[in-house]
Simulated assay, not measured.
Amino acid sequence: MSSPCDPQHAPAGDVGTALMMIDSRLKCIHDGKSGSDPEQQELVDQFAASLGPQGTKDLLDGACTLIFMFMKWLRMTHEQHEKDVIEYVVPTLVATMRMMPRSCPSEVIPTMAGLVIAAGTGLSPNLWRKQYGHWTDEEMTPLEVTAFLLAEHINRIADDPDFATRMITEALSGVDEN
């Protein structure tokens, strides 16, 4: 029986824009800029304000699609070494988020862990989250942090600071060609 959280029922959203935002954060960190660059944050805020309600929903769905794709890659990679992706990814993710109380208040960390676990077990993170109501404002930054941390984790495993972005870009190119 198919789950209502099956990814085939989930909208992909605006994966390109979500990836652009995550890649921008990754480059900022790797360029040695610690913390939040005020200019970049202002541009992101202006961009988000220009999206409108449907654009914001598409961006949220896109971020969840990224989380799903990142976790799918991590699951396949961990299974090659006979390891459980949940056991190896979720505790590190939660511990890192706990060290970021301004970006990730403790009350939203269980939701982000749930999203990652849903994705790690092959469920759609956005449909999983939808079961519990609408997204809250308090969850927006932690959602971005979750996607960022998963991308960074993949980049460290691959020993390539652009691997996660390139992987998604190539997957999107393959979809466009089909």
Rank of each mutant, 00 (worst) to 15 (best):
S2N: 12
C5P: 00
C5N: 13
D6E: 15
P7A: 06
Q8P: 00
A10G: 06
P11G: 05
P11W: 08
A12G: 06
G13Y: 03
G13S: 02
D14W: 07
G16D: 14
T17L: 15
T17I: 04
T17Q: 11
M21T: 12
I22R: 01
I22A: 00
I22K: 04
S24T: 15
S24I: 06
R25N: 14
H30I: 00
G32R: 09
K33N: 10
G35V: 10
S36K: 11
P38L: 09
E39P: 00
E39Y: 12
Q41N: 10
L43I: 07
L43W: 13
D45P: 01
D45T: 13
F47M: 13
A48G: 08
S50E: 09
P53F: 12
T56R: 12
T56M: 14
K57H: 12
D58H: 07
A63T: 15
T65K: 01
T65C: 08
F68I: 05
M69S: 15
F70Q: 12
M71F: 12
M71H: 06
M71A: 04
L74A: 08
R75P: 03
M76R: 10
H81F: 13
E82T: 10
E82R: 12
D84S: 11
V85H: 03
I86H: 05
I86W: 04
E87A: 12
E87S: 11
V89L: 07
V90P: 00
P91L: 09
P91M: 07
T92I: 11
T92Q: 14
L93E: 07
M97Y: 06
M97R: 02
R98Q: 15
M100H: 01
R102W: 10
S103D: 12
P105D: 06
S106I: 14
E107H: 14
I109T: 03
P110G: 01
T111D: 13
M112G: 04
G114Y: 04
V116F: 02
A118H: 01
T121F: 04
T121R: 05
T121K: 05
G122S: 05
S124M: 02
P125D: 05
P125E: 04
W128L: 02
R129W: 11
R129Q: 13
Q131V: 07
G133H: 11
G133S: 09
T136P: 02
E138N: 09
E138T: 12
M140L: 15
T141E: 06
T141W: 03
P142A: 03
L143Q: 00
E144M: 10
T146H: 00
L149R: 01
L150Y: 03
E152H: 13
I154Y: 02
I154V: 14
I154F: 02
R156V: 10
I157T: 04
I157E: 03
I157F: 10
D159M: 13
D160F: 11
D160K: 02
A164F: 07
A164R: 00
R166M: 13
R166G: 01
I168G: 01
T169E: 08
T169M: 03
E170S: 03
A171W: 05
L172E: 14
L172V: 09
V175R: 05
D176K: 09
N178K: 01
N178E: 07
